[in-house]
């Protein structure tokens, strides 16, 4: 199937536009984070209940919202609108890649990164509806923008068919599931890191005073991390499983401790440990957050180090 170079070029433009729009949105989010009102405890509870996620439900606690909207909040809303626009560009970029190459648009690191970051942004948008965490947008979008920037420059690969080992419907299934779940895991990773900042600050307020005082309550961050991990982890598990099924057909064995398989296994174990830690009284809070942050770091490590530095069967990065 010949590659449609024109479409691919439009796709790249859309990709770059998405990055631009995300950068703009990041600044607006960060503005709200820096200058918006610090979230008050009562207000937080109200929003939590409105989203139906409160553990302590008490009718009658809902206070009517104040109608006035200070500038910071307007900026926050604009940021969300821009994020949605960015997602639109982002999705179109992937679709055009797919049409241009006539295959699933996740065959090299540029494309894979685009899907991963899209999943991260989408997950955040969805979770924002049930958690009062809009102002965290900047912290989620920053790694997204960095990843997309790297993807569009150092890791860029022109539109082309994929090599024989990748010509399988398992490319569609395995890679999409794994990259979507990895992208989703970016959200709890960010939430857990912020949790650590926030709880350190709560213990010693002078530490990050200007910054952390305005973060959502530690408890909210903790629940955000847990909820998003619970969504992403089963998907991640399925992704690894699909990978194993594919490996059986493509490489002659379903598991062979290839570097990428190994690190996937290690991060799987770390996330499983997180879920256990969260369920065990003494480990809740900071320790669980450390475990989750570790899982996130391993995922990033798997993405970059294993793809680019070690040579394994998974070296389909399309780089170099």
């Amino acid at each position: 199937m010949p590659v449609n170079a024109t479409l691919a070029t439009y796709g790249d433009w859309l990709y770059n536009s998405a990055v631009g729009v995300y950068i703009l949105a990041t600044f607006l989010y960060l503005y709200e984070q820096a200058f918006g009102r610090a979230p008050a405890k009562a207000k937080e509870r109200e929003l939590v209940v409105a989203g139906g996620t409160g553990e302590q439900w008490k009718p009658g606690l809902v206070v009517p919202k104040k109608p006035e909207r200070p500038r910071a909040e307007r900026f926050g809303r604009m940021a969300v609108a821009l994020t949605l626009l960015g997602v639109l560009f982002h999705v179109s970029a992937l679709v055009l890649r797919g049409v241009a190459t006539g295959r699933a648009p996740w065959g090299n690191m540029y494309e894979y990164g685009a899907l991963l970051t899209l999943a991260a942004v989408a997950t955040f948008l969805v979770l924002m509806r049930s958690f009062p965490v809009r102002r965290l947008g900047g912290f989620v979008l920053t790694p997204v923008v960095i990843l997309m920037f790297l993807g569009g420059t150092a890791l860029y690969a022109p539109a082309a068919p994929v090599q024989p080992a990748l010509q399988s419907y398992w490319l569609v299934i395995h890679v999409s599931v794994i990259s979507i779940s990895t992208g989703m895991l970016l959200v709890p990773g960010v939430a857990s890191l912020l949790y650590l900042v926030k709880s350190t600050n709560d213990a010693k307020p002078e530490r990050f005073a200007r910054f952390a005082g305005r973060l959502p309550a530690a408890d909210t961050l903790d629940r955000l991390a847990y909820r998003s991990t619970v969504l992403a982890f089963p998907l991640f598990t399925i992704g690894i499983m699909f990978g194993a099924i594919w490996a059986e057909a493509a490489w002659g064995r379903f598991w062979g401790w290839d570097p990428k398989e190994t690190v996937a296994f290690v991060s799987w174990v770390v996330y499983a440990a997180y879920l256990h830690a969260r369920a065990t009284a003494g480990w809740r809070g900071a320790r669980a957050a450390w475990v989750n942050a570790l899982g996130f770091l391993l995922t990033v490590f798997n993405l970059f180090f294993i793809n680019l530095v070690t040579a394994g069967l998974h070296s389909y990065a399309g780089v170099g």
Partner: peptide, 8 residues
């Protein structure tokens, strides 16, 4: 997890 890592 730790023990598996050197293998990578």
């Amino acid at each position: 997890a730790l023990g598996a890592l050197p293998g990578a």
